[in-house]
Simulated scan of single mutants.
Amino acid sequence: MFIEKRIIQGPDRYKSESKIIVIHETANARSTIDNEVSNSNNNWATQYAYVNYFVDDKRVVQTFENGYQVWGAGPTANSKAYSQIEMVRVSKDKFPDQVKLLGQLVGKLSKDSGIPITWNVLNGITTHAELSRTYKEVNHYDPESYVAMQGWTLQQFYDEVIKAAKGENDDMDLTKLTGQCAVDALGVAWISNPGGAILYDEKKKPTDRVLPLGSPWAFHNTDDGMLSVGGLIDQKDALIKFNRGKTGGDYRGMTVKVITDDCYTQQQPKTGMPGVQKLPQGELYLVINQSEDKKYFDLGVNQWVDTSKLNIVL
């Protein structure tokens, strides 16, 4: 999940108790996420309202930092909220995707804050409606009517948000996942965090980039719980298959894929040898033997192949 950031600069920053994550809906059938974000950023001071996020069926836009009070659900709720999220209205056919994206965001916020993934108005996920009933400081009851308009029950909505937040509606069975990496790579990591994996720079400082749930990334080393994928990610955000040829030094019996259009067999496992037989790009082969330096494989054609022309299939 990629999070766009369009942070409001004007409001003061006051720390919240960070006990709840609040869900709203905009109640504007003609609006878009860009309209809502622009309106919030430009008019927060006169409307006396702004939140941390806007979500539609495809995008998440952050407009204020988490853990700071916003003007969204009344004084008591605002002081307790780690983050408040506005759902931008979408059509019925897009609503399931919006709920899934909302849940994935909730899962990320829960991980970052320690707030449990459960519906609880005091310590968990809640809605503007439940806060209105609890504290009686405002009389807004969203997103209940919006959910009903989509033909969903509130219980169905609650259940699906929880499933998405926990990643239960995503097929992340490692035995079913397949990927590729260079022969000398350490393995492949699939992003398993419902909120995606934050990409860190070489100094382990977070960047604005988030690798999406389910995406595969080859990694070349591990360092103090971090994986190098062209940047660093937290190993806890991913499911991993190691390249046993790299880790154990024996590639025999592993499957490789030809990745270039100039892959030729040769009679000896050394550089400068003439090509004998061209292997089709995209074809799969089993490694029968390997050279001592692991730079050439015998793929069962009694010839040697340069491993830079191949990927390991995991």
Rank of each mutant, 00 (worst) to 15 (best):
Y50V: 10
R133S: 15
A73D: 12
I115D: 07
S79L: 11
Q84G: 06
E144C: 10
D57P: 00
T26E: 02
D112I: 12
Y141D: 05
A148D: 15
S113C: 04
A164C: 09
S79I: 10
P143C: 01
G114A: 04
Y146P: 03
N123W: 10
M149D: 15
K100D: 14
K100M: 11
V121S: 02
N139V: 14
E65D: 14
Q62V: 06
V88T: 08
N139A: 15
S145N: 13
V99L: 02
N35S: 12
K108R: 15
V61H: 03
G72P: 03
L154D: 12
V70N: 06
G124W: 02
P143A: 02
Q69P: 01
A49R: 13
W152R: 13
N39Q: 13
T46A: 14
L131P: 04
T46P: 09
D57Q: 11
V70M: 05
G72I: 05
W71C: 09
N78S: 02
Q84N: 04
E86S: 12
K94N: 15
G124V: 00
L105A: 01
V88Q: 09
T118N: 12
W71D: 09
A73I: 04
A73N: 00
K163A: 08
W71E: 10
S113Q: 05
F64C: 00
R30G: 15
L131F: 03
D142W: 11
Y146N: 03
Y141L: 08
S113D: 00
N42A: 15
A49N: 15
V161W: 03
V99R: 10
N78Y: 04
K94H: 13
V90E: 07
N52V: 05
